[in-house]
Every structure is written in structure tokens, then in C-alpha cells.
Design a protein around this nucleic acid. Sequence first.
DNA 1: TATTGTTATACTCTATAACTATA
DNA 2: TATAGTTATAGAGTATAACAATA
Lengths: 163, 163
Amino acid sequence: MGIATDMEVRARDDHHASLRLWLRLLSCTTRIEDTVRQRLRETFGITLPRFDLMAQLEREPQGLSMGELSRRMMVTGGNVTTIVDQLENEQLVQRQTQAGDRRSFTVSLTPAGRKAFSAMAREHEEWVVDMLSSLSERQQEQLYKLLGNLKRGLHQPSNQETP
Amino acid sequence: MGIATDMEVRARDDHHASLRLWLRLLSCTTRIEDTVRQRLRETFGITLPRFDLMAQLEREPQGLSMGELSRRMMVTGGNVTTIVDQLENEQLVQRQTQAGDRRSFTVSLTPAGRKAFSAMAREHEEWVVDMLSSLSERQQEQLYKLLGNLKRGLHQPSNQETP
DNA sequence: TATTGTTATACTCTATAACTATA
DNA sequence: TATAGTTATAGAGTATAACAATA
């Protein structure tokens, strides 16, 4: 499984502060992500991509097309087909044909899927709350804001060919 | 390639603030990591695990055993064997037999490996500096400190069975 | 027996590309 | 022709387990 390399160990004194920051960011995230992944598997026998797909559907009770799922998950279509096939086998999601365009389906959670997802989401949230609990509410807010700035900065690839 | 799902879209109003923070953390990290991975491949034809292994060796000029590499990279031994095999084929690292214990080797960078790594590391650092450049120096410091707190908190699994 | 490392194998996640059926 | 989705395949990246050589 691997519970996260401590990549931060790579940082050396002569490295730029930004690099140290990045390695620390990577190290924290990987550690949390690996824990979540492992617990989702152990507790619910589900993988992160499948959990994510169900989360997408939970937000859209009216359902989503395969293409829209593919776009939202930033994953190519073939992969969505595979995940939906699995979840459909377990009767957690359903494909419904669309009137109007017979090439396309609407995928949505089944009642069983909604129920299963909500149990998983509850646990998942507890894990995350617990793992972040070493930061005060105020610190979490600060972190949230800083990451917001970072994220906005990443939006434009920031390849400003220095003129 | 995939340049990072925007997982943050999963966050909903009724979700705990910690969950939103986690999704944002994941989203930022994934986006940077995917970019780095892609550029390492395009620019140097190298994967992240191979880059990481070379980084480990660069920090230890006297070399490391396979087992120690496996521990530091938090990856099982078979995988280290594969990576070292590849890098040895390209003459970037070398295995040297140890006097004293003939089961074990010392792996270290060759001069060519040192040279190649230092060129890659320089570029890599530039990419990172650029991607983080939307944050001021002061903001980066703040972020670094907050993540330090978080990381310390993660060290003990924080499974404090609430009494 | 225990340890170091290798080999063989499998599974998850992702991508690309050829294909089918509609439109 | 173009689009929605599927199938087939490949390649990272990881794990486990059986194995060989040495301690």
C-alpha cells in the first residue's frame, strides 16, 4: 500500500524555499490520500475513482451522461465505462436510455447507491476531520485561503514567457 | 495524462469545512504533481519514481543499499530492483558489491548520473518555483508553517480513541 | 532460520485508438 | 461526417509471494 513516501526528506538547504514547500505539500497530501484510499478499501471495498464517481452522481440527482462524467472526472471515456459497468453490476448506479438521443445514457445513483454512498461519505468525512484535527479552526481557514490563492494561480498555466 | 481532476467540485455546503479544505489540498497537489510528471517525461524521458530514486542517491554520495532505498521510498523491494535495473542500464546508477555482506549492494549515482540528475533537478525546481509564484514569499512561509503543523499532527495516526 | 535481493505475477488506474450505433 | 459510448490494448506504478544466495 505504501502510506506515503516522505518526499520532504529530499529537501536540502541549498534548495529554494518553494521547493521545500512543494515537497511538504506533496508529503502531507500523499499521506492523507493513501490513508483514505486504504480505509475505503478495507472498510467498504471500494476504490477512490469509484467513490469519486458516486460523489459526482450524488451531486446531480437527475443524473449525468457518460461524457459529462468523463469531463468532470478528467478521465477518458473508456475508464468511465469500466467504472460504471462495475457499479452497475453491484446495482449502485443505473444507466437509463435517453429519449431524443439513443446514443446516450443518463447515469444516476440507485436508491441502494444513494444509501451506500451516504454511509461511505459520512465515514470518509470523519477520517478527514480527524486527520486535519491537529490544526485549529482558524488555521484551517488560513490554509484554505492560501490554497485558494495557489489554486487560482495555477488556473492560468502561468507560462508567462518572461519578456 | 489528465492534469488533475478538480476534486474540489465535490465539496458541498453541508460538508464540513475540513472536507472542503482536504479537497482543495488534494486538487492543488494533484495539479502540480501531474504537471511535474508530464514535464519530466517530455523533457527528460524519466518517470517520477526514477527521479525520486536518483534524488535519494544524490543526498547520499556514499550510496544506499537496496533495502534502504526501498524503505526511504516506501515502496516494496521488487519495485526498487526494477528501477535500479533501468537506471543501471542507462549507466546513471551503479551497484557495488559490499565487502562484509555478499548478499547486499551499495547503489550510487555514477558521474553521468550525478550530472544528469543535477540538470533535471535544476529544471524541476524552476517549474515548482514558477507554479508557486502566485503566492508571495510571506504567504509561502505561512503555508509552509501550517503544513508543518499538519504534518506533525499526521505523524501519530491521531487515533486517539476518544475516552 | 533469518535476511537481502530478485523474479514472477497480478491489480488498479490511466491513456490511445479502432470500432459500433446513432445523429 | 460527427458524436456517444464501448472495446481492446498498453504502460505506469504498486503489491504479494515464491525463490536464491548468503548470513
